[in-house]
Amino acid sequence: MLEVKNLTKCYGNIKAIENVSFVSSPGKIFGLLGPNGAGKSTTIKSIINIIKPNSGEILFNGEKINYNFLNKIGYLPEERGLYKKSKVYDVITYLAELKGLDRNQLKKNANYWFEKLKIKDLKDRKIEELSKGNQQKIQFICSLIHNPDLLILDEPFSGFDPINQQEIKNLILEFVESGKIIILSTHQMDTAEKLCSDILLLNKGKSIICGSLKDIKQKFGGLHIRINMIENTDLLNSFFEIISYEVFNNFIELHLMDNVIPSEFLKKLIEKVPINHFSIIEPTLEKIFIDTIKGQTIK
């Protein structure tokens, strides 16, 4: 289990993160979310021991992180790149040996991943000779070749085409199922929504929402329904139950007041407007995020 407690890091007078806390448990993907500059990178760099936080502590399985902890982490940075002039296997060997992997185990693990990602024939090629997608795959292998207990992925899908994205997604899910901790940092809310069970939403260095995705949706989501109507949407303004609505090409999404009973609202709606679709929907993470930030700004 990874516990981050009251982490604060300042650069001069600027607070990059302030009192950030969260817990990430094995077998789950933890989503670190937020717009650019929210403090995601600073949080990650504190965990992987690249920067020293001004205050707060990071515990791994109850112990403060130290030099030996480095061998248990795998890290895939957002900006990718490897030694262009070097051979694929040499680069993997170097990075794996730095993580304390012995030669025999390295060979086994490397073969496993080469087979799995179907890139066995690239082993002796130079990095610069590979396509961008394949270079990303190699970097992905480098981050988990030593079978880390904690894998930190910073925007892991950027640069992959949809087919490869799916492949990587499956690998991540497979990896976490083996009881590992994964921290996934991204600003793509839909990706996080599909993969993460717990999330931390950061904005301007501060923790906005933290907890399991289910709880968050229940707590912050409110009541959302989707309808399909032909008539003029202006009619919707006459319903006091509707807080806001958003018109899309094929449907309209309504945000209703919390005390509204959907079936009764439907009855009321049909009386005034002919509709051919009505469904209750879960709010997207993106919507929760935007609403929360907007709410904070208004306050």
Binding site: I48, L70, N71, Y75, Y83, L98, K99, S143
Partner: peptide
Amino acid sequence: LEEKSNRLIEILVSSCS
């Protein structure tokens, strides 16, 4: 410079001091 510009340096210092 190469290690810095492609952030390999981050992988390296997350593996050793």
